[in-house]
Design a protein around this nucleic acid. Structure first.
Lengths: 340, 340
DNA sequence: GAAAGTTTCCAAAGCGCTTTGGCTGATGAT
DNA sequence: ATCATCAGCCAAAGCGCTTTGGAAACTTTC
C-alpha cells in the first residue's frame, strides 16, 4: 500500500493525501479525517526511503562506534543505550550504529552526514579538546555530546554530570573523616570525565592544605583487573593511602579484591568510595562491604539525550545548551574515620 | 557530487557510469577505469537513500531491541556488538537498532521489514519456541538466530555454542571430583540457553545415577545480586551443594560473595564453575580464587554472525544452516575434590 | 558483401515520497 | 455586479539511483 494506491482509493491526489497525513493546513478537516481513517484501516505507512530521498530526513539518530580488535566497548554503553531506546521507541526513532576504525572516526562521520543517513548524532566519551566535536559542528548536523570536552574555541550542546563536584565531595568527605593519604583510581586520563574527577579531588585536598601526589593517582582503563593492580600498587607503597576514591564500580571490584589480598579491612584500614553509573547487574549495596558511591544513572542520561536530540531535529532546541546534572553521594559502610 | 554530475563530467550516460561502478559486464574495461578514476577523484559516493529506493537494498542489518523501564539490556550485548562492528566496519555495513516495546516486538519487526529499512536481521536470546523466528521466517527477510530455539516446526539458520555439552562437561567434572550434591545457578529458564545448560547438567548427573533435584536448581536473571541470593539459599539448605555450576561470571561474583558470607571456602568446601562469555572488564582468572570456566567468546560470535548475515544478503549463504561452536573448559583453582 | 552476432553505450521509466506552482470555486469587500 | 481573497485541491517536477529495452558500432560468419 503506497501513496498512489491510497490516493486513488480515496479519489484524491497524492499531494492532498500526503499533506493531510503530514498535518499541513491547506486541507479541510473532513478530508483529513477521511484520509487518516483510510490510512489507518489499510495500514498505510510511508516508505522511509522515499521520504528520506525527498526530504533528506532520516528518522534516525546516529552513533559512530569505534571498533577494532583492541577496542572494547564500554559496558556502560549498554545502559546508556537502554535509556536512549526508552525514549526513541515512543517516538519511532531508530538508532544507527556505524562502526568505525578507532583511529579514524572522521571518515565515518563525514560519510553518515554526507549520505544523510541520520538526522542527528551523539558523541560519547569525549576526550580533552575532542576533535569530533569540531567536526560535527562544522558538518552542521544536530548533535549532543554526552560528557564534555575542554579547550574548544566554541560552545556546544552537551549533557554531563557534575564529575568535578561529585569527586570533590567524595574526597572532601574522606578528608572530613580524617584521612590524609587519599588516592584516586581514575579512568583513562585522556577522557574529560577523568580530568574533571581528578580536578575535583585536588580541589578538595587543596582546601585542606593537602595535595594529590602522583604516587596517589592511577589512571587506567576501567576494568576489574586494572582496579586490582592500581589498588595493589597503591596499598603496597610505604605511605599507603587510607582512602581510595574510584571511578567505577567495576574497578572497585578489583580494589576490594586487592584490599582483601593484602589483608586490609574495609573500612577499618581503607575507606572506599566509587562512582556508580547504576547497573542493574552490579549494585554497590551488594558489595562485600556496601559501597559508598557517587551515583548518577547513565540510563537516565540516555533518555534525556534522546529527548534533546529529537528536540534539536525538530528545531525546538537550538544553540549550545549545556546541561549539568548533580550527582548524589550515597553513604554506605565502606567509609570510616582514618585509622590512627 | 551525484551520478548526473559525474556522468556529465565524463560525457557518459548515468546508466553507463552506474554500471561501471557496480561492476556490470557490459562496459569496457577502459571506460570502467575512467569512471572509477573520476569517481575516486571527486569523492563520489552514491546516495544510499536513492539507491535504497531504487533497489530496495539498505546496506544495514537490523536488531529489534526490547526496551522498557523494567527491561535491562544484557551487558553481554555490548560484547556481541563489538564483534558485529568489527566485521561490519570492514564491509561498510551499518547496524540499526530499533527499540521495541518488550511485549510487542512483532510490530517493530513488521515495520522494519515492510519499510525495507534493513537487509537482514538477527535475533538474540531466543526463548523456547520463540515466535520471533517464525515471524521473520514468514516475513522473508534474511536472518540468523544467535542461539537456538526449540519446538519450532521448521529449520532456521543459527549460530549457537554447545551449551548442553559445555554444562554437561562441567557437571561431569564435578562428579568425577567426587561431588554428589551439585547445584545449577542458571539464567532465566525461558531462554533456550538455560534449558540446554540444565539438560547438560542433568545428563551428566544421570550418567552417574544422580539427579538434579529441584532444590539444587535456581533460574534467575543473571545479576550479581541474584547470584548471591541463589547461592546463599542453596548453601543454607540442610543438604547443601558441594559444587555449583553457574551460568555467568556476573552471577558467579554473587556466588563467591555468598560462599564467603557463609564461611565456605572455595574450593575446599565448595567447587565452582561458571560460564565465561569473555568480557574484557571481568576475567575469571582474576576472581579471588581463579575460576574454572566454560569459555566462549561472545564477541567472536558477533563477528561470525555479521559475516554470515552479509553472506545471506548477497545470496552466498542460504538455507537453514545451523552452526554450533564447541565450548572450552578451562580449569582453574576454583574446583577440588568433594569434601569428606 | 550481407546476415548475424557482440560489444558498448544510452534514453527513459521507474522507486514512493514531498513540494512547487498553479487552478477552481466560494466568500467578502467594494 | 465586480474584483480580490482564500480555502482546498491537483498536476507535475523533483530527490538520485537502478534497470529495462533498445540502438549504434564493430566483429564475425558464410
Amino acid at each position: 500500500m503506497n501513496l498512489k494506491q491510497l490516493s486513488r482509493m480515496l479519489d484524491l491526489s497524492q499531494t492532498t493525501v500526503s499533506r493531510a497525513l503530514n498535518g499541513y493546513p491547506e486541507v479541510s478537516e473532513e478530508t483529513r479525517r477521511r484520509v487518516a481513517d483510510a490510512a489507518r484501516r489499510h495500514g498505510y505507512r510511508p516508505n522511509p526511503s522515499a521520504r528520506r530521498l525527498a526530504t533528506g530526513k532520516a528518522g534516525m539518530i546516529g552513533y559512530v562506534m569505534p571498533t577494532g580488535a583492541s577496542v572494547d566497548i564500554d559496558p556502560h554503553f549498554v545502559e546508556f543505550l537502554s535509556g536512549l531506546g526508552d525514549y526513541a521507541r515512543a517516538h519511532e526513532l531508530d538508532l544507527v550504529l556505524s562502526p568505525a576504525e578507532a583511529d579514524d572516526e572522521e571518515t565515518t562521520y563525514r560519510r553518515i552526514v554526507a549520505n544523510k543517513q541520520v538526522d542527528a548524532v551523539y558523541i560519547s566519551a569525549p576526550r580533552h579538546a575532542d576533535r569530533r566535536i569540531a567536526l560535527v559542528q562544522q558538518l552542521g548536523i544536530p548533535y549532543i555530546v554526552h560528557g564534555r570536552s575542554e579547550e574548544l574555541d566554541f560552545d556546544y550542546p552537551f549533557l554531563d554530570i557534575d564529575n568535578e563536584a561529585a569527586f570533590h565531595d567524595a574526597a572532601r568527605l574522606m578528608v572530613q573523616l580524617g584521612h590524609r593519604r587519599i588516592a584516586l583510581v581514575n579512568g583513562d586520563e585522556t577522557q574529560t570525565f577523568a580530568i574533571c574527577r581528578e580536578r575535583g579531588v585536588r580541589r578538595a585536598l587543596d582546601a585542606r592544605g593537602l595535595v594529590l601526589a602522583p604516587v596517589m593517582l592511577r589512571s587506567v582503563a576501567m576494568t576489574e583487573e586494572n582496579g586490582y593492580r592500581a589498588a595493589r600498587s597503591l596499598l603496597m607503597q610505604d605511605e599507603a593511602p587510607t582512602a581510595i576514591v574510584c571511578s567505577s564500580l567495576i574497578m572497585a571490584l578489583g580494589v576490594v579484591r586487592a584490599a582483601r589480598d593484602l589483608g586490609r579491612s574495609i573500612p577499618r584500614d581503607l575507606s572506599l568510595i566509587a562512582h556508580d553509573d547504576v547497573f542493574p547487574w552490579l549494585k554497590p549495596e551488594n558489595f562485600p562491604v556496601p559501597l559508598t558511591t557517587t551515583r548518577s544513572s547513565i540510563r537516565a542520561a540516555g533518555q534525556r539525550i534522546a529527548e534533546r536530540l529529537a528536540a534539536r531535529i525538530s528545531g525546538q532546541e537550538a544553540g549550545a545548551l549545556g546541561e549539568v546534572w548533580p550527582v548524589d553521594l550515597i553513604v554506605r559502610s565502606s567509609i570510616a574515620g582514618a585509622p590512627a
